[in-house]
């Protein structure tokens, strides 16, 4: 009797696999309207990705992305609601309408472009492979036989998956905390991450120093938002352009990256 009920339950679930759910959450208004009427801009930021976003000893988020979020909110004249997310779930946060914008050192690629929209770039970002100085790696072929930690779903993950040699092992961690911890505790030989992230780690004098080995991709950061929100897009781009010309973005770059904003941005 009990056994039969288990099977019918499994069957019911299997039948559920073929349904097509069309729940319409109502025609969504343009994001800008929602933000202005609620008076709050909800922004997804990293909390495990220094110097873009990490925590101070009071656990408050700080970094390039947090300053950028504050800047945009200020220009819009609304309050900012900082929502810490991980690399792997920042796009679901946007899709499920938990945030209005993703300012989370988000790089652009075709897979992401298919599901969300990107603003103009607001920060420089180069990602590459980093490893201790004594490990000889100068090109992607040298990863052969090595294990490399990446954050699942990041640009580094997607790019390295395509170009890494067959016998290199990619270990994909849930978030940057996992990736960085895995590197520092010696669970992987090398990490693929952003240049600034590696620099920030080195600055803290860790037991293992991630020295730059080779560049994977020049992949500046963009503000991400849901598709079909032209007004929000226009406004965000306007604010970014203004911040570039009046020097406020340069100030953020100087503060967190220690370099002036590159001219090509």
């Amino acid at each position: 009797m009990k056994r039969r009920s288990l099977f019918s339950l499994a069957l019911a679930l299997a039948a559920g696999l073929s349904f097509s759910l069309s729940a319409a959450p109502g025609a969504r208004a343009d994001g800008l309207e929602t933000v202005m009427s609620s008076g709050t801009l909800r922004v997804a930021v990293p909390q495990d990705f220094p110097p873009f976003g990490s925590v101070g000893s009071d656990m408050a988020p700080q970094g390039y992305d947090i300053d950028m979020a504050k800047l945009i909110a200020e220009k819009l004249g609304v309050k900012v609601d900082i929502v810490p997310v991980t690399s792997a779930n920042r796009i679901p946060y946007l899709q499920t309408n938990k945030v209005d914008l993703v300012i989370s050192s988000l790089g652009k690629n075709p897979e992401r472009d298919a599901v969300i929209d990107f603003s103009d770039p607001y920060a420089p970002f180069y990602n590459g492979v980093f490893a201790p100085a004594d490990l000889e790696i100068s090109a992607v072929e040298d990863l052969s036989g090595k294990t490399v930690g990446v954050t699942r779903g990041s640009i580094e993950d997607l790019e390295l998956t395509k170009i890494a040699p067959e016998d290199a092992t990619l270990k994909r961690y849930e978030d940057n905390n996992g990736t960085i911890s895995a590197f520092l505790s010696g669970q992987v030989d090398a990490v693929a991450t952003g240049n600034v992230v590696a620099a920030a780690i080195i600055e803290k004098n860790p037991p293992k120093r991630p020295e730059p080995k080779f560049l994977i991709k020049n992949s500046p950061c963009y503000v991400g938002m849901n598709e079909n929100e032209p007004e929000l897009m226009a406004k965000v781009n306007e604010i970014i352009a203004e911040a570039k010309s009046d020097g406020s973005l340069n100030a953020i770059s100087e503060k967190w990256l220690g370099i002036p904003l590159p001219a090509e941005l």
Partner: peptide
């Protein structure tokens, strides 16, 4: 992403190594 004891642990690990 709920910041309770374990999450605080992972965050702090990354700030302290």
């Amino acid at each position: 992403g709920f910041v309770e004891l374990t999450k605080a642990g992972t965050i702090v690990t990354n700030a302290t190594f």
